[in-house]
């Protein structure tokens, strides 16, 4: 990933900063600047998520792209944050620990790097709570 592409969303990724439509009281992470429910009537403001949630569904990746090959097998999951929005993240745990409905919390990890000499990308992953 290019430096500006990552840098632009760094705060979102580091601190789970998403958005909240105060018109319809819907939370968005990943952030949306346009509320799909209210569209132009929506008033969308920044919101920091607490970082706790529940596993909705998951898979254990055995075959990955180059960038993630060293991590296999690793768990990816769709997580519903307590505020009600969903995101996709790795869950750092033993693979046989995983179950649907598992409570999870945020941790700060490396998301990847642009080769050995390139920038390192940090952000949020989850662990069992």
């Amino acid at each position: 990933m290019s430096v500006p592409r990552f840098w632009r969303e760094q705060q979102n990724r580091y601190n789970l900063i998403g958005t909240h439509c105060t018109t319809c009281n819907t939370y968005y992470y990943p952030p949306r600047i346009l509320c799909p429910k209210c569209r132009r009537e929506g008033k969308v403001v920044e919101h920091q998520f607490k970082g706790t949630g529940t596993v909705v569904t998951y898979s254990i990746i055995r075959s990955a792209s180059d960038q993630f090959n060293d991590l296999t097998p690793y768990v990816i999951a769709i997580i519903e944050l307590d505020e009600g929005t969903r995101l996709t993240s790795q869950v750092i745990c033993e693979i046989d620990e995983m179950y649907i409905g598992m409570p999870v919390k945020r941790v700060f990890r490396r998301l990847g790097e642009d080769g050995e000499s390139g920038p390192i990308f940090y952000g949020t992953k989850f662990v069992p709570a």
Partner: peptide
Amino acid sequence: PDMDEDTITIAVEAAR
């Protein structure tokens, strides 16, 4: 460390 941990991630977790 885990595969995705380094001095920065450790420092952040300690600070948090």
